[in-house]
Every structure is written in structure tokens, then in C-alpha cells.
């Protein structure tokens, strides 16, 4: 009698295991089809280092230009310093985008994941929209030479892009986005723009990238 009971009990347990496997399979399929999870830690570390290098060069150029108050408060948009800084910023941006895209695609291939899925398309679109909106504002900042607004605007729009994109990739990106947005508060204070940019684009990316290595499914 006892053994029959155990037999029933174990078949029940076995089928219950199978049902929870089914549910786990459903969850993983939903996750894999709607989120791009092959974010590489290098996709944070390389742009972080590039940003620090760019900001260090920018600080050096500003000091060398011997502006009276140390920061570009009211100089003309055609001033050679502004042109140099713009060139550095664009170079860092382009190199960062290409390196992180390359590292993510490489990781996806290594994990035998598809590199062109609805999740990736969604991710790119939701990342690009707030950044393009931010680019329009940056254009007006250039036009009106309101350089002190540049750092807060860049940080908050980038943060918004991260918050939006977190729906289609690792959820923890959401908190990186909130952090970048909150940095736009100190970034507006006179003399704080470059150090805060170094925190937001440099150190935050490096720390997040290192965290991704330790906790790949964050």
C-alpha cells in the first residue's frame, strides 16, 4: 500500500517538474524574444575610457587656451577652442557607438544568439529617438552659445534613452539611466560640467561594465 502511494507520489512529482519546466521555458522564450541580453561588459568599459580620455584632453585644451574664468562661458561658436572640443566630442561619440555595437554583436555571436531580431530593432529605435531629440536641443545650444546648458542636456537626454531602452535589454540599464538623469542637476552648476560629465560618461560606464562581467544576467 505504502509503495503504491509512493509510486503515485513520484509520478505526480515528476509531472509537476515537467509543468514547472514548461513554465520556465515559456518565461525564457518570452525574455529571449523581447530583450537583447548579450550586452558585453566591454560595451560599457570602452566608451567609459574613451569619454575619460576625451574629457582629459578637453580640460587640457581649455586650460591651455587661458580663458579667464577657466570655462567657456561666453565665447563665440567659431572660436578654435569650440571647434576642437566639438571634434573631440564627436570622435568620442562615434568611436563609442562603434566599439559598443561591435562588442555586443561579438558577444551575441559567441552565445549563438541572433544578431538581428525584433528585440534589437526595438532597442535601437528606442535608443535613437531620445538621442535625436537631444541632438536638436544641442543644436540650439550651439546656435545660442549657451555652453553651460550643454552638460545637463546631454546627460538627461542620454539618461532618458537608457531608461527607455531598458525595456528591450537588461533591466538594470534603467538604474544607469536614472543615475545619468540625476547627474544633470549638478552638471548645471558653474565649473561642475566637465567633472560631472566624467562621472556620468566615464566612471558610470566603467563601473556598470565591470558589474556586467560579475553578474551577466543582471
Amino acid at each position: 500500500m505504502k509503495s503504491i502511494y509512493f509510486a503515485i507520489q513520484s509520478t505526480l512529482n515528476m509531472s509537476q517538474n515537467q509543468y514547472s519546466d514548461d513554465l520556465a521555458h515559456i518565461r525564457s522564450m518570452m525574455e529571449r524574444s523581447s530583450r537583447f541580453l548579450s550586452l558585453s561588459g566591454w560595451a560599457g568599459i570602452i566608451p567609459g575610457l574613451l569619454a575619460l580620455a576625451g574629457l582629459a584632453t578637453a580640460t587640457w585644451l581649455i586650460k591651455a587656451s587661458k580663458l579667464t574664468n577657466g570655462y567657456a562661458s561666453a565665447i563665440d561658436q567659431n572660436h578654435p577652442l569650440i571647434l576642437q572640443l566639438t571634434f573631440i566630442a564627436l570622435a568620442v561619440l562615434v568611436l563609442s557607438v562603434f566599439s559598443s555595437w561591435y562588442m555586443c554583436m561579438r558577444k551575441a555571436r559567441l552565445e549563438k544568439q541572433s544578431t538581428w531580431t525584433p528585440a534589437i530593432r526595438n532597442m535601437l529605435m528606442h535608443f535613437a529617438i531620445p538621442l535625436l531629440a537631444g541632438a536638436v536641443i544641442v543644436g540650439w545650444i550651439y546656435e545660442n552659445e549657451q555652453w553651460d546648458l550643454l552638460s545637463p542636456v546631454v546627460l538627461s537626454f542620454y539618461g532618458l534613452a537608457l531608461v527607455l531602452v531598458s525595456q528591450f535589454t537588461l533591466r538594470s540599464i534603467f538604474w544607469l539611466g536614472i543615475f545619468e538623469i540625476s547627474l544633470s542637476i549638478p552638471a548645471g552648476m558653474t565649473g561642475w560640467d566637465l567633472p560631472v560629465l566624467a562621472i556620468g560618461f566615464g566612471f558610470a560606464h566603467i563601473v556598470y561594465g565591470v558589474m556586467m562581467f560579475n553578474k551577466p544576467q543582471a
Partner: peptide, 25 residues
Amino acid sequence: RIRLGIMSALMVNDTIDFNALKELL
């Protein structure tokens, strides 16, 4: 399991094309 997987993916995406499903599953 395959039909379960197809349906799971279609629950969270508006549409998915054949090749994306093939790679996913």
C-alpha cells in the same frame, strides 16, 4: 515545446518572421 516556444514569443511581440523564429527556437 516548439509550439509552446512559438506561442510564448508571439505573446510578447506583435509579429515575428519565420527566420527570427527559426533562430530563436
